[in-house]
């Protein structure tokens, strides 16, 4: 499998970041960084990572299905993650989720037909004091209201409409 030079460099660093014989430690970071570029964890990637760290594809599969941020199916270009855990729920997170789902016409872990947005109701993302909070890909947005969310999504659309 051919990886981008950037990913190759990351993988190379990861393989030397752990004690000798412990290359398996690089599995999760490898999957995360690769997913960032590929948009999903493909079977090809599973086999590639397994080969590089010296374990079986099944062992990678066991790990990747455990972690909620690793996805075997492709996500949208912008993955909108709305926290509805307790602090966000108390401050309108659940309503925000309903709003987003209605607006984008997709549900939990679904991708819009054009592949631009995907949506996920997520557990606590660590922004409780600035709730309700969402993440779009890795970017945090605090004190989000339905109106703010609309502006954010529209902004992303227009920025990409070239």
């Amino acid at each position: 499998m051919t990886l981008s030079p950037h990913l190759e460099a990351k993988f190379a660093k990861l393989l030397t970041s752990y004690p000798p014989g412990r290359q398996r430690s690089a599995m999760i970071p490898m999957l995360m960084f690769a997913q960032d570029e590929l948009g999903q964890v493909t079977q090809e990637l599973v086999e590639e990572v397994a080969r590089r760290i010296g374990c079986t594809p099944l062992q990678v599969e066991e790990v990747l299905t455990y972690y909620s941020m690793l996805h075997k199916k492709p996500l949208g270009k912008y993955h909108v993650q709305i926290c509805t855990n307790i602090s966000c729920m108390l401050t309108g997170g659940a309503e925000l989720w309903e709003h987003a789902s209605g607006k984008l016409r997709i549900g939990h872990r679904e991708v819009a037909a054009d592949g631009f947005f995907s949506l996920e109701e997520v557990e606590c993302i660590g922004a409780c004091s600035w709730a309700p909070a969402i993440q779009v890909n890795y970017d945090f947005h605090h004190h989000v209201t339905p109106e703010k969310l609309d502006r954010l999504l529209a902004g992303l659309r227009s920025a990409n409409a070239v």
Binding site: S17, Y18, M27, M32, C55, V63, S68
Partner: peptide
């Protein structure tokens, strides 16, 4: 010193689960 990313699992906040995860295993 090295950074190591998790991948979404509350359980990995439990110290021994974190170590498993650090070693490339299920948390």
């Amino acid at each position: 010193a090295f950074t190591h990313t998790g991948a979404g699992a509350y359980e990995c906040g439990e110290e021994s689960a974190l170590l498993e995860s650090l070693e490339g295993k299920r948390g």
